[in-house]
């Protein structure tokens, strides 16, 4: 009985999560340029318009660039720091972690504006590179958190065994450390990429004239005639991420056996 009630709740909650999001693809196929009911007819013209919209495609490419660079750099920084705090007994580790984790507790608007002030003060021009700087501040704590969790479960004796068996440091890294860390690295890359790709406010302050996709979306929301094309791209991004997430999960579940059997309570 209790089960049934929970299942109904879970279904209702899922509907609450999905319904608003599903309006985006729905209206991207609606013939009218006004985002309102009743629907006026089926069209794919917004998708056609999308691929001719060079400004939007440029923004998409900007966001992909910023996302990839941010993901790689923040994961690299996270990797170094995670190794340092888990494998060495350093004084001030707690303080350092608290400092690196600080952006999690600071509103994005403050992070963006503070960095903008600094860049303005030293006369550094705004560009995609400055967006990357802002996103590094935001994403490095995420990368570090994911990778620390991974390092903590890491059995150092495997590395020692490899060394005992005659592998040099480099080969030990490639054949033991790296494969074991790979799931953590992948998770960190994914999380930091998606955070950067979707980040609006910091990019809004730091992007200058090179708009990232969210900044471009923001500038278009004021013009009703532009909305259907924005929704079309939004729907495509949703589709791409769903495919990506499902693929990643399938690969992950195939690669790693579940570590705990599920027991109902």
């Amino acid at each position: 009985m209790r089960n049934r009630g929970l299942l109904v709740y879970a279904a209702a909650y899922l509907a609450f999560l999905y319904l608003p999001v599903l309006f985006l693809p729905l209206f991207s196929f609606n013939a009218s340029q006004y985002i309102a009911f009743p629907l006026t007819g089926f069209t794919t013209q917004w998708y056609t318009a999308l691929f001719a919209d060079t400004a939007m495609l440029q923004a998409l490419s900007n966001s992909l660039k910023v996302g990839v660079v941010t993901a790689i750099l923040s994961t690299l920084l996270g990797l170094l720091a995670a190794k340092a705090v888990t494998q060495y007994r350093l004084k001030g580790t707690g303080t350092a972690l608290g400092f690196i984790g600080l952006p999690l507790f600071i509103p994005d608007v403050v992070l963006g504006i503070a960095l903008l002030l600094l860049l303005a003060a030293i006369g550094f021009p705004l560009s995609l590179a400055t967006v990357v700087l802002g996103h590094l501040c935001l994403c490095t704590p995420f990368a570090l958190a994911v990778l620390i969790a991974r390092f903590e479960g890491f059995d150092r004796s495997l590395e020692e065994a490899s060394a005992d068996l005659g592998e040099n440091g480099w080969m030990t890294f490639w054949r033991v450390t790296f494969p074991l860390m790979l799931p953590g690295i992948t998770a960190s890359l994914l999380l930091t990429f998606i955070t950067s790709f979707d980040e609006f406010l910091i990019a809004y302050f730091l992007s200058g004239t090179d708009a990232t996709l969210p900044v471009f979306f923001w500038s278009q929301l004021r013009f009703p005639a532009r909305l259907p094309v924005v929704l079309a791209l939004g729907a495509l991004i949703l589709l791409a991420s769903v495919v990506l997430v499902v693929l990643a999960e399938v690969v992950r579940n195939r690669g790693v056996a579940p570590d705990k059997k599920t027991i109902g309570a």
Binding site: L24, P214, F217, G234, V242
Partner: peptide, 8 residues
């Protein structure tokens, strides 16, 4: 649902 743009 959280993989769509936050803005959208």
């Amino acid at each position: 649902p959280f993989w769509t743009s936050y803005l959208l």
